[in-house]
Design a protein around this nucleic acid. Structure first.
Length: 723
RNA sequence: GCUGCUGUAGCUCAGUGGUAGAGCACUUCCUUGGUAAGGAAGAGGUCAUGGGUUCAAGUCCCAUCAGCAGCUCCA
């Protein structure tokens, strides 16, 4: 008999147990009730099955730390959902023939499992799948774990006709000597675990959606069907989760944007190209005016630059070659330009046959272009050179994907002295990127957008202070729109990757500068390796909105690369040339994305200072219409965004419409108000505020605007149900 | 770009091979009112586009375009 193992509980008590003892046994020793509630165990900080023995789990010589996990522990939900994924897979295998299992992990909201099977699963099949899952759950069969050496594991998966699992063992798990499996009834799956003791612990499940996916995330690999589901320890939690999803749907900026006339995307203009309707544009103007004023007072210089630039400039900056696929095709001054471009691409990819080459030569001749230096016997590189030489004698323009090259040119437009630094150039610059069709999403992911962009050119010594100032600016901007729950993500390079440009030293210097400032700032920040841009590390602001979703918006990026590429220089106090450092920064990120996020955060109900319709004047009847128009003029003169409801009908209906249109204030005017030069002000949030002189109402609203008050984050469930 | 789903009035949607519908919005008329819906009438559609099957297509098939969900990508 082997020696006993010391087990220490969270309260510090320790006891010796036989090696075959399991966490579940210990739970049972404490109370039957606890044993019934145990979902999994945490042994030496690792989440494991409650039904594995300490002999197997213990690694060291000292006592093992045991924490029993019940439905009250957050980690337990993950275990439950992983088991639910197995239950779903089991149901699928019962319902359909020839199912190959891929992976079935948990996600934030639930779990999914990827399958390869002939039948295309649609939402209509969900009820049958759920019914089968419920049968499995009701049977309360236990999950059992067993391990096999690799050859036997491969054999088992072959016997089970699970070719994807076989492949995974042979490739992804090639370094594993033994592999663990879980059995539940007739269902056996290669799986790391851990799992719940038995299926009966799953009290609430729901199939959520079905979508396509790829084996191991490789688009050229096998296409799989991914089934999403979720599971909870009780039905109430499931209900709350579903309500939260409904809440997010109600806030969808695409729906609210249409409903409230904020923006529109027309197929006639093009996919991913946003039309700002007057009301949406007013929100944007408020944001732009606010930021412009801030920047001017913080030592920034406004600049303007064109929305196209020569391809050569983007070759210099590196953007054109690096992001070729996600840019709009270049504009060529010569009609044969596109042909030569495609020709050169093919040569570069090595996919041009001699036949096709002859055809291209002939085609070029049709356009009157002969290439005497182009020798069919030359190397592909030499041929490309000839083509590129021809191209560079003709204009090629790129719809700009970034503003920075233009701003570099502005820096270069005149000799610079160290006395002029830091030079902070800002522009609300529109850029165009040909994002993949499947990525487009309302205002959040578009093909044309406007960055609240600026580039700071400074000396190496000024980097920290400038970085700190931009962090402070971004925090201020976010606070002004009522966003105070955010985290900064410091994105560093992936040491294993070679996609980065610039020297090792520059990267080290950049990364440590950013880290230092963030540490001093007291902001909550996390570091992420491998998330940096190709030209430098960056700090992204991850904002949490009022329903807990995270958004990546503002960004501050350090760049030692572009100044190098554009050979930017300033004259130092030693009267010799020095290279400036560049900081790219955008507190909003893009106006499109930021506005889209605000629409969802406020559920369309903007605070007064951002609101596209701040006051609507409601005449009691047509008899008061003239006075209403006069009041609206007074409000407009005072700088407020005011309209008049000139429709017929009763004031109750006008109020209802204004409330539904999320107008911040209503000014009800009837004979009494006209007589006294007053308005009866009604607040969207608090209701009737009573009559007051128009001037008093104006002062009240102007104060709220100047203070940029965010009085309420609108909760749609407070809205009365539509009749 | 890939997989799947969807496309009918301005909006939300019904319409399972045989005469294109509802609610809201809109227009007109009546009503002229005091803090979340007054009443009546009317107008509005090449059923996304293009092919095909059929005596007959909004409905079935194919392609294209667009949208949605997910995958992959994101300077």
């Amino acid at each position: 008999m082997s020696t006993e193992i010391e087990v220490r509980l969270p309260d510090g008590t320790t006891a010796a147990h036989a090696p075959e003892t399991t966490p579940m046994d210990i739970a049972r020793g404490i109370s039957e009730g606890l044993a019934r509630g145990v979902i999994a165990a945490e042994v030496d900080g690792k989440i494991v099955d409650s039904f594995r023995s300490f002999g197997e789990l213990s690694t060291g010589t000292g006592p093992v730390d045991l924490k029993l996990l019940t439905s009250r522990d957050a980690e337990a939900l993950d275990v439950l959902r992983h088991s639910a994924a197995h239950v779903m897979a089991r149901a699928i295998m019962r319902l359909y023939k020839g199912v190959s299992l891929a992976f079935g992990p948990t996600t934030d909201g639930g779990f999914y499992y990827d399958f390869d099977l002939d039948k295309t699963i649609s939402e209509e099949d969900f009820s049958a799948i759920e019914a089968e899952m419920k049968k499995i759950i009701k049977a309360k069969e236990p999950f059992e774990r067993f391990s096999l050496p690799r050859d036997e594991a491969v054999k088992l998966c072959q016997d089970l006709e699970q070719d994807l699992k076989v492949e995974h063992i042979e490739t992804g798990l090639s370094d594993q000597e033994t592999l663990s499996f879980y059995r539940q009834g007739e269902f056996v799956d290669l799986c790391r675990g851990p799992h719940i003791p038995d299926a009966g612990k799953i009290k609430a499940i729901k199939m959520m959606s079905v979508a396509g996916s790829h084996w191991k995330g490789d688009v050229s690999g096998r296409s799989l069907q991914r089934l999403y589901g979720t599971a909870f320890f009780d039905k109430k939690e499931l209900k709350a989760y579903l309500e939260q999803i409904e809440e997010a749907k109600r806030r969808d900026h695409r729906v609210l944007g249409k409903q409230h006339g904020l923006f529109s995307i027309s197929p006639d203009v093009g996919q991913g190209l946003c039309l700002w309707l007057p009301k949406g544009a007013r929100v944007r103007v408020a944001l732009e005016d606010f930021l412009r004023k801030e920047l001017l007072s913080r030592g920034y210089d406004p600049v303007y630059s064109p929305q196209i630039g020569r391809v050569e400039m983007y070759e210099t900056s590196g953007h054109f070659p690096y992001y070729r696929d996600s840019q709009f095709a270049p504009l060529f001054s010569s009609e044969v330009g596109g042909l030569l471009d495609a020709w050169s691409e093919r040569l570069g990819a090595g996919t041009l046959s001699g036949d096709d080459e002859d055809k291209l030569m002939a085609a070029a001749e049709v356009f009157g272009v002969t290439l005497p230096d182009y020798k069919p016997s030359a190397t592909a590189d030499r041929k490309r050179e000839v083509l590129n030489d021809w191209q560079s004698l003709h204009e090629r323009y790129l719809l700009r994907p970034m503003n920075c090259p233009h701003h570099c040119q502005i820096f270069k437009a005149q000799p610079r002295s160290y006395r002029q630094l830091p030079l902070r150039l800002f522009e609300f610059g529109s850029v165009f990127r040909h994002e993949q069709t499947g990525e487009l999403n309302g205002m959040l992911r578009v093909r044309g957008f406007t960055q609240d962009d600026a580039h700071i050119f400074c000396t190496a010594d000024q980097v920290e202070a400038e970085f700190q100032a931009t962090i402070e600016l971004t925090s201020f901007v976010l606070k002004s729109v009522g966003l105070d729950d955010y985290q900064v993500q410091l994105s560093l390079r992936d040491p294993k990757s070679d996609k980065y440009v610039g020297s090792e030293e520059n990267w080290d210097q950049a990364e440590s500068s950013l880290r230092g400032v963030l540490e001093q700032s007291g902001l909550n920040f996390v570091e992420e390796e491998g998330e940096a841009a190709f030209y430098g590390p960056k700090a992204d602001f991850m904002i949490r909105d009022c329903i807990g979703r995270s958004w990546q918006l503002g960004t501050v990026q350090l760049d030692y690369n572009l100044p190098e590429r554009f050979k930017l220089e300033y004259n130092g106090n030693d009267n010799s040339a020095h290279r400036p450092v560049m900081i790219h920064r955008a507190p909003f990120g893009s106006l499109e994305r930021f506005t889209g996020m605000l629409i969802e955060h406020f559920a369309g109900a903007f605070p007064l200072w951002l609101s596209p319709e701040q006051v609507r004047v409601l005449p009691l009847s047509d008899k008061s219409l003239d006075y209403a128009v006069a009041v609206a003029e007074q409000l407009t003169d005072a700088g407020l965004k005011a309209t008049v409801d000139n429709t017929g009908g009763k004031v109750q209906a006008k109020i209802r419409n204004a409330q539904l249109d999320l107008v911040n204030y209503m000014a009800v005017v009837g004979p009494k108000e006209a007589e006294a030069g007053q308005v009866a002000l009604r607040d969207r949030i608090d209701g009737d505020l009573g009559s007051m002189p128009t001037a008093e109402a104006i002062a009240r609203l102007k104060k709220e605007i100047e203070e940029r008050t965010v009085r309420q984050v609108y909760k749609p469930d407070e809205k009365p149900a539509e009749a």
